[in-house]
């Protein structure tokens, strides 16, 4: 088998192993959360028998390891379970499945992340490459200073600044629902997308700049110059093909942040994303939803990093064309 396929399969296996370990961590950390769901829902005055019956109904009376196995087996079959919320002390059961709850929220988050990425990734690549080419120029210094400033503020502060200055042009509440038109959706998420762009551009741009500068100093770039290859061709043909691995790693890291780390921005703009859902479900002790959210976050991280690894591997001629 080609060594690249072997390596990619190895990485995939490692990713799955990581996901498995993460599932154990997620499950046990939620199991260690203080407080009891039964008491929380039924109130402090509930009779111990009622609480016990309620717990039995939800399967919370079983030992932890058994619950973990049941959960994992169900997840492997595509069943993320049923939300606890919607159950009332009255006994009425209006609970929905976790998939039903998460799907629209996840879609919203992915939409926001996608729009941000489409703007932020090319922007930071462009800024990074141009800054590297004009190293130590005024342009380079300004780009560095501005991006460093934006990354140094907490996201919510940038969000509020944008609201202060751009409230007249863009909506400050990003309330969307299933029926919102695409164009209107874009318009409504302009400010959160801009906030997150400002946060992630600095990291990606600086990493791109650093790897390009590193490669510009390599003997083969000088060789290309001394062969009379034009400036733009030197960058496109001789520098970039060797720069993808580090750039892909930092892009993957930031894309993962777009999915996983946006909860603060979602709260500021009241955007119905998956981050809010997770926070709500944790405070409501809605174990199945919280677990599912955590699992989705973990998978996003693992998947994106896996992708970056694979890009690093397939752009490395030493691995692609072994001796």
């Amino acid at each position: 088998m080609h060594p690249v396929i072997t390596t990619v399969l190895q990485r995939l296996g490692l990713g799955l192993l990581t996901l498995f370990l993460v599932s154990i961590i997620i499950f046990s950390s939620i199991a260690f959360l203080p407080g009891d769901f039964g008491e929380f829902v039924l109130g402090q005055n509930a009779l111990p028998e009622t609480v016990a019956a309620f717990r039995r109904e939800l399967g919370l009376d079983e030992p932890t390891w058994l619950r973990y196995i049941k959960w994992v087996t169900a997840v492997l079959q595509g069943d993320l379970g049923t939300s606890f919320s919607g159950r009332a002390s009255s006994g009425a059961n209006e609970s929905r499945t976790v998939v039903e709850l998460i799907a629209p929220r996840l879609w919203n988050t992915l939409f926001l992340a996608g729009v941000t990425a489409i703007v932020a990734v090319p922007l930071s690549l462009f800024l990074g490459i141009t800054a590297a080419l004009k190293r130590n120029s005024l342009y380079d210094r300004s780009v560095n200073a501005v991006t460093l400033t934006t990354i140094s503020f907490p996201e919510f502060f940038i969000a509020y600044l944008l609201i202060v200055f751009l409230a007249g042009y863009f909506p400050t509440l990003s309330t969307v629902n299933d029926g919102t038109e695409f164009g209107e959706r874009l318009f409504k998420i302009a400010l959160p997308a801009l906030t997150m762009t400002l946060v992630i551009v600095a990291h990606m741009m600086r990493m791109t700049r650093a790897s390009i500068i590193n490669l510009l100093a390599s003997p083969y770039v000088e060789m290309a110059q001394l062969k009379g290859v034009s400036r733009s061709k030197v960058i496109l043909k001789h520098v970039l093909p060797n720069a993808w691995a580090p750039i892909a790693t930092v892009i993957a890291f930031n894309l993962a942040y777009l999915v996983v780390g946006v909860v603060v921005v979602e709260v500021v703009f009241v955007y119905p994303g998956i981050g809010q859902l997770m926070v709500d479900s944790v405070s409501a002790r809605d174990i199945p939803v919280a677990q599912a959210c955590a699992l989705i976050f973990a998978s996003t991280y693992i998947l994106l990093n896996l992708l970056a690894d694979v890009i690093g591997i397939v752009t490395n001629p030493r691995l692609l064309h072994p001796r």
């Binding site: 390599s218 003997p219 083969y220 000088e222 060789m223 043909k237 093909p241 060797n242 752009t315 030493r318």
Partner: peptide, 11 residues
Amino acid sequence: AQSAAASFNPA
């Protein structure tokens, strides 16, 4: 160049 190994683009 002196170092051929470093002066050829690996890609």
